[in-house]
């Protein structure tokens, strides 16, 4: 942890393998050793003052929109017959019915599937890199992962359209359309999402694999464990929190993604993020102007659940692997 920061920590988990809890505890303990000459109040005041801009920014930039979402989700919009600002459950009710329900389920399904696949593929890939004796291979794969994990959004969509789209190079080369191939389907979207989720998984899980101590493998061998038994009884259980945490993080990433799908699939695969964008551009029934906010609230609920699972896992793996 004291070495120079990893050049490619594009995920929270990648920068967080060390014992954050431990470090914060020591810091908290040492804070009361005073070398204060100007009196504790002046010093404390200065410190609070320095955090004030961040707090203010947060309240305005983040607090207001969040409040707007929550209030908006439960009130009528300005185009409603009853007038704006009336309390109502209509938005929330509508947001979990019909096409919106389909979109939510489809989003959940896509996120879960891609996160699972990326976890299953990312682990052996990261292990191949970690156990490799070639330093350059590790460096190359991690740098590439850093780039590709950032390669979400539009460029990714266009790259796949150019490759596997209807007029894509590979599609034409292998006459894939004749075999019923289409990129603009659930399967197609899965393949595209994996392109940034697998590198994200590699970045997330590599510190955990690095954290597996040689002593554990040797102690296992010394206690009569075969390689298979080592993985089954030692390595995988120790990695489990990291793997689950990684899965959840990937799920959240896939769930929140908008640009890739927006640029690629048109309306063939319904997704919550797209429904919100549609609703915001006025593409809703009269009186449902605040539907977008209700949909956003649904999304936030899912994301909160994701984080509620992720953070404890993250803490546990940090404790084991630091």
């Amino acid at each position: 942890m004291t070495t120079a920061p990893t050049p490619v920590p594009t995920t929270p988990a990648a920068t967080e393998p060390g014992g954050g809890a431990g470090a914060s505890r020591t810091a908290a303990r040492t804070t009361h050793t005073p070398t204060r000459r100007r009196g504790p109040l002046a010093r404390l005041g200065g410190a609070w003052l320095a955090t004030l801009p961040l707090l203010l920014f947060f309240v305005i930039g983040f607090g207001l929109p969040t409040v707007a979402i929550v209030i908006g989700a439960f009130t009528t919009s300005s185009d409603a017959e009853t007038g704006a600002g009336q309390f109502t459950f209509d938005n929330v009710t509508a947001s979990v019915q019909g096409a919106y329900l389909t979109a939510m389920l489809s989003s959940l399904k896509l996120s879960a599937l891609t996160a699972l696949l990326a976890t299953l593929i990312g682990l052996p890939l990261a292990q191949a890199v970690v156990t490799s004796r070639q330093g350059w291979l590790r460096q190359a794969v991690l740098t590439a992962s850093g780039v590709l994990a950032n390669f979400g959004g539009l460029p990714l969509a266009f790259a796949f359209v150019a490759t596997l789209g209807n007029a894509g190079e590979i599609t034409r080369l292998l006459h894939l359309t004749d075999h019923g191939w289409s990129l603009y389907t659930f399967t197609g979207l899965t393949i595209v999402y994996l392109y940034f989720l697998i590198p994200l998984m590699v970045l997330t899980i590599t510190p955990a694999l690095d954290g597996l101590r040689v002593q554990w493998r040797e102690a296992a061998q010394n206690n009569r464990a075969t390689t298979y038994q080592y993985w089954r009884h030692v390595a995988l259980p120790i990695l489990l929190p990291s793997l689950l945490g990684g899965f959840v993080l990937l799920f959240g990433s896939a769930f929140a993604a908008y640009a890739t799908a927006a640029a690629m699939v048109g309306a063939t695969v319904p997704l919550v993020s797209r429904s919100i964008a549609d609703a915001l551009s006025g593409n809703v029934l009269v009186g449902q102007g605040n539907l977008a906010l209700a949909l956003s609230l649904n999304m936030i609920v899912v994301a909160v659940l994701v984080m509620a699972v992720y953070l404890p896992l993250q803490r546990r793996s940090a404790r084991w692997l630091s």
Binding site: A27, T51, P65, A68, F255, A256, L295, A303, M307
Partner: peptide, 26 residues
Amino acid sequence: LRPVIDVLCTLPLVVPPVALTAGMIG
């Protein structure tokens, strides 16, 4: 204040960009 800052700086993760944008429009 440290735990407060920690929570504040993690919170945006639970509001996907689309939702954040919707809130801002609101």
